[in-house]
Design a protein around this nucleic acid. Sequence first.
DNA 1: ACCTGAACACCGTTCAAGT
DNA 2: ACCTGAACACCGTTCAAGT
Lengths: 199, 199
Amino acid sequence: MARRSEHSQQEIKEMVLKAAESIVIDEGFAELKVRKVAMEIGYTVGSIYMVFDNLADLVMQLKGRTLDDMTEQLKLLPKQGNAKQNIITLAIAYQTFACQNFNRWSMLFEHRLPEHEVVPAWYQEKVNLVFSLVELQFLGLTSAANEEQSKWAARALWSGVHGICILSLSGRMDLLGMRRIEETVVLLVENFIKGWQMR
Amino acid sequence: MARRSEHSQQEIKEMVLKAAESIVIDEGFAELKVRKVAMEIGYTVGSIYMVFDNLADLVMQLKGRTLDDMTEQLKLLPKQGNAKQNIITLAIAYQTFACQNFNRWSMLFEHRLPEHEVVPAWYQEKVNLVFSLVELQFLGLTSAANEEQSKWAARALWSGVHGICILSLSGRMDLLGMRRIEETVVLLVENFIKGWQMR
DNA sequence: ACCTGAACACCGTTCAAGT
DNA sequence: ACCTGAACACCGTTCAAGT
């Protein structure tokens, strides 16, 4: 037994992440088990702990990848001169990503670090990156806006968009269907911006 | 052994809920275990299953109680003629409840029913009750609003307020402190209503 | 050095067996 | 009828032992 060396540590790490990602996508975050991942890649449980501290570590990496995918998708969006339209486009794209990658997206918020554990800086940075895309557009919204206020407004609105996605996609709102959710997102964004611009 | 009959089924049910509630409040939802509850009330694990189908059932009852407490607190709020002010008051009260009852409030959204299980009607009704408080105020906001549109706007905004609470209280936003969160909530509400009223 | 797999502690849930 | 507590299946994690 042991000493196979068929794959480098790096390769195993990648295999684990790929396998774990598939499980989350196909069966949901609740179905992600260390033993299942190990079996999937043809190794035993112990080997997972060679490349990850523990399950929480593995999950954080997965969450990071999900944020990367989301950021990439948001960055691909066509930009126009109209900042307001860009924000609406971003909001719809966020909601679309949440719908189309529901299990991975849910994982971002279902998973909580064990008590008193701090969010790693590299992860927080990825979160900030998403927010910054909206903040950037908010700066282009009105000339007379303080940069700090702009940032603040962007985060308030983006949290709001997120709230609609969370409550809608958890079946906690009865009005359903992606179409309806998208309309709700647009409603929030348009009215908020309207109010913000005439402050 | 067995056959104690010191408490009625109803009494045991109540004892279980009280004990479970304490555990969630003091140690968080993740620390809620059947064995811990049983020990707390001086019974054995099996007895929990006399009065609840399973842990998920027990948790749903707990969540229902939390929603009841929240509704009660929101209903106690002083009402003025000004619908806009009432909505702001409601939003701040929601955020305050979330802060002051963080562990119980988090449980509402951390807990997910096992795959394909439907939310019980009685629970959905309690959720709707919360939403209805905001919807009612939205009807008083402008005379020229379609009732359906009003309801829609109320749910959009309320989801938004919830989003701010979720992201802020999970330490996912760097601007911190309850004060700052409250200001963010007010920012979202005021601008949304401003935009909504001039549509 | 790399990997195994048995072992440990800890879950939710069940149910035969006592009173 | 009420309640026990041992048993089961299933977790994450560790680590002595092999190659």
